[in-house]
Design a protein around this nucleic acid. Structure first.
Lengths: 209, 209, 209, 209
DNA sequence: TATGAATGAGGATTCATTCAT
DNA sequence: CATGAATGAATCCTCATTCAT
């Protein structure tokens, strides 16, 4: 069997195992068995547990970014772009729960080298969202652009909310109340954020006292 | 030395170690050494690694809830309550980064039993926030209450955003741009959410198409 | 059982195993079993295979040096000192063949860190021998001291010859011709070296052509 | 490429790897890569690691013997023969340090089968030297031949000293004091041994008491 | 109350060796 | 003639956990 195929099998098995058990609790034995190969072959192709994990993170980060990018059409107005991106994001996370667990939980919990890998991807997304927010401000004819820090904070919060919702969506799957769909989640978030953003642009702020 | 004191020393050491190393990577050896006691004593008092971790989660969840509850004065209007709670939340997370790591990362990454423990706490917080949202709706004279699911989704998103911001606040500490304070974070979130929430209550919604 | 005792048992087992199998071929499993303890205990006390090997080298080097030093009485004339030292050396090597193998073979064959350890001991011995050679020259009323390099070369050759003879003595043990005793070996070497050394001091040299 | 050539490449690589890393630490992977062939080919031609190592030992032992034999002219007097042989020996060891390491260190450190292989070669050399010593005795008109055991002991010591000096010569290469040449080493040894040997033949002996 | 001594079980990693092509 | 693909068997090391005192 050609190397490329085997390699994909192994990484699939690894993502699944890492996603469910966690980095430390996942054993190379289990991964190899799940992939249907012997352990030495895993080492021959992927060198070490660390490298294997890193490879998984990179592959899944790329896949997530690609899924979002494909869904977004740059000629649309900013809100439609955000909507499309969010929907794709939730859908991807729901369709690949183990990959999502690897990116959102495991990678960020097991040491800098891995966390940096996802941080890079998250940086892309935050920047993308921040861009949309500024575009939205311009489209809305905002008198002056909101401060850069404001925008970054907003983007952080939005992405955080999305991530948190994604986890909720994934976890609600097995529950009695029925699953929450990607579109529902995206709509919730748009309602939560976009309308308020409009006000924010218009200068309406909440402030203590 | 009285048992209660010893026990607290151990749990302090455990929280610190679990928070920094992660559940699996933390060794009972390290915890015992950091606590300044022998390993058998740790087992005598806390029985097993799992129970120790659970105890840490419970203690820190309680501490976080308490900190938030103390800050909130129930006679105030809903928005002031939320503001106070958020500020306390961010401050607590910033002051106890290891505890925050245990709750936010480690506990949710290492198996159901632990995740359920934090899920319970999170449930409390979400319910509290949902209550505030409904109160806000009433206060604002909303024609009809928003659907229950809407409210839960909003609360989830808000709490998720808060958690994400807390991580951001904690991580920005060492950076050049200057640390982000608890108040700043709370203000960002209030701006992000509250104003828009008002519109939402008034019936203004974003919807695709 | 007290730690010190256990530690000695382990090192005895280690010397024996390293001496017979070689550093790489010796397994920690075998050492632990031979010592009558579990593997983790070996690691608890001696930390790693490398450290264990180093500890063995150091202990046996010290033991060998001590054996030689004890045998030498500094008031005697140089030739008697050398004779006593050589006899003690051969006797010690014959009585502790595994230790001798560790020092002479294994340590020098498995990487710098170990080789340096024995090189230090060997340095002591060579210096001691060189000292005796110079003393002998003085005692014999040599007109001028032999060149420093000559002396070092001679000492090297003498020590090398002794080491080689020690190996021969050890290996001849099981053979039909009967074992070679420490005294025989020492005598051979004294004959080989001392008489010639006398001539050398007197200025008689062999030279090509 | 003809088989003989390939085989030589492999053995060259093997000698180099075994000499530097040691028998156990040398991996067939490394040897194959260094030889520029695939691992199965190594197995096809040389069957196993053990056989490969044995083949290396044999080849290099032969080469060393040949180098010494070529240098010795049987019509010369015994001392000149010894001188020529020693010089050739030191030169060969210096020019082929990895081969020397294989013969002197590795082969003798990793189990009987290999040690016997070098022991055979060493036996040839010792016999050759012993022959020269007896010839020298005759040439010197010794009243009676020295005992056989004396001669073997002397030859052993001489060869041992030579081996030890060879290691010293090889290792002194990188040092500040300047390298020690093959001729210097041979001269040291001749001075050390030959002059004294003369006395020995004449019956002058060192003896304790 | 407190600990020094001890271990069973398991995990990452490597290596000599063999097929099918 | 030559190799890409594959593995069984060890080996080093760590860790949660328990006695005897």
């Amino acid at each position: 069997m050609p190397r490329a195929v085997r390699e994909r099998q192994m990484m699939d098995a690894a993502v699944r195992t890492f996603g469910r058990r966690g980095y430390r609790a996942a054993s190379m034995d289990e991964i190899a068995e799940l992939a249907g190969v012997s352990k030495p072959l895993v080492y021959l192709y992927l060198h070490s547990k660390e490298e294997l994990f890193t490879a998984c993170i990179r592959r899944e980060a790329e896949a997530l970014l690609t899924a979002v990018e494909r869904a977004v059409e740059p000629e649309l107005p900013a809100d439609r772009q955000l909507w499309a991106g969010l929907t794709a994001f939730f859908a991807h996370a729901a369709e690949h729960p183990d990959a999502w667990s690897v990116l959102h939980r495991q990678a960020r919990t097991h040491g800098e080298p891995f966390a940096l890998e996802v941080a890079a991807m998250r940086g892309h997304i935050v920047a993308f969202v921040a861009g949309l927010l500024e575009a939205a401000a311009r489209e809305a004819g905002s008198p002056g652009p909101p401060g850069e820090r404001d925008v970054e904070g907003l983007a952080q919060a939005l992405v955080g909310a999305a991530e948190s919702l994604a986890a909720w969506v994934n976890e609600s799957e097995g529950e009695s109340g029925g699953a929450v769909s990607a579109k529902e989640a995206a709509a919730t978030l748009m309602n939560f954020a976009w309308v308020g953003l409009g006000d924010l642009i218009k200068g309406e702020r909440w402030s203590p006292r």
